[in-house]
Design a binder for these strands. Structure first.
Lengths: 195, 195
DNA sequence: CGCGACGTTGATTTGCCTCAACGATTGTGG
DNA sequence: CCACAATCGTTGAGGCAAATCAACGTCGCG
């Protein structure tokens, strides 16, 4: 039970049998149908969430009604509106499943207890957040220094597994371009490659 | 001694007298002249760094030789090439002082000891990194959904203290526009405001 | 079968860049 | 203490990458 979650944690910090037990009890499973919302803007985000199966997106809607994908989450990833979770303020992001999905989640109060019961959990989330932070820094630098075509190439080579599961217009949104423009990029790349 | 550092940590986690002692001994002071490099691309980054006084920038140089400012650091901020530090790989970023500065730094080995001696330090860096991650997420969303003018307005209202200390072309770089374009934005904003 | 979701194409517009030139200010060596 | 060179900000002309808008093709599904 919750095997992938335990593996995910053990990949970074050691756990005793007893701690594994505690962790497994603390996380609850939630199943989502396709296109079901896990969090809406304005909601309180009271859980840390681990994607066990399927694929979800974290996105926001700007003043003009435009959707912007901040992050995808596939199995083995953690997803949340972290700011809303940490500060207990209403969410600014939406979280929605793209395919049928299973999420394991732990309530904030339970997590705060767990930080004291299992100190390695502090360390685990420090490491996870550091890794996430670093990945986001890289994305930031790329968005400043590379063209959309370069970023798309990089995306498909790094996230081949994600690319299969999700529609192209969501990748466009994640990359910060319009679906039309991504289509043009793909056309250009394919004609270049068969030369 | 290292008063601002201790204050910075105590703002997030409790510390005993003894722990304060340990932390103060673990951090070493380093003074920098204006435009002095603290880290160069290719160096190993072996320290976590806290800005005690002054102002620095973290930046990268792309293939075309263009500089991109990833982050500023003023007193009370932590700065690093976190990826290089965590993975012990050569740095991809440069860290350079903009003004005369004082930095407090702790070596990785000493920090790893400290994580075990003072478990609250794990928690402290978890919280700090979570906050940094959240701030970077917000910047990401803004870069996708707002115009350069909106981002500049937001920057000066949030970082008024930084804006004073650093040249305009570095703010332009941070915002992802050319100095010329930022100049045009400022002109437009000033004519609009005196209407 | 028909409809909605998704991808593509092309015409036009726009936000920002590039390049080149020109003040203004600062600081530095003779 | 002045002269000159850097450094920094501004201005304007021309160009390009990507957005917008509108139309159309295709596929899967109720």
């Amino acid at each position: 039970m919750h095997e992938s979650l335990i593996q995910n944690i053990k990949a970074h910090v050691p756990l005793t049998e007893n701690e594994v037990e505690l962790i497994q009890e603390a996380f609850k499973e939630r199943k989502l149908k396709k296109k079901e919302h896990l969090l809406q803007k304005g909601d309180n985000s009271n859980h840390m969430r681990f994607v066990s199966e399927g694929c979800l997106k974290v996105y926001s809607i700007d003043e003009d009604g435009q959707e912007h994908v901040l992050q995808f989450g596939i199995s083995g990833w953690w997803i949340n509106d972290l700011y809303a979770f940490l500060t207990q303020t209403p969410a600014t992001f939406f979280i929605q499943s793209i395919t049928e999905s299973t999420v394991l989640q732990i309530h904030r109060d339970r997590l705060n207890q767990l930080y004291d019961e299992v100190p390695m959990i502090d360390r685990f989330f420090r490491i996870k957040t550091q890794n996430g932070y670093v990945a986001l820094q890289e994305r930031t630098i790329r968005s400043m220094s590379e063209t959309a075509e370069q970023r798309y190439s990089q995306f498909i080579s790094r996230y081949r597994d994600i690319e299969q599961q999700i529609p192209q217009y969501l990748i466009a949104s994640y990359l910060g371009v319009t679906p039309e423009h991504l289509s043009a990029i793909r056309k250009k790349m394919s004609t270049n490659n068969l030369s």
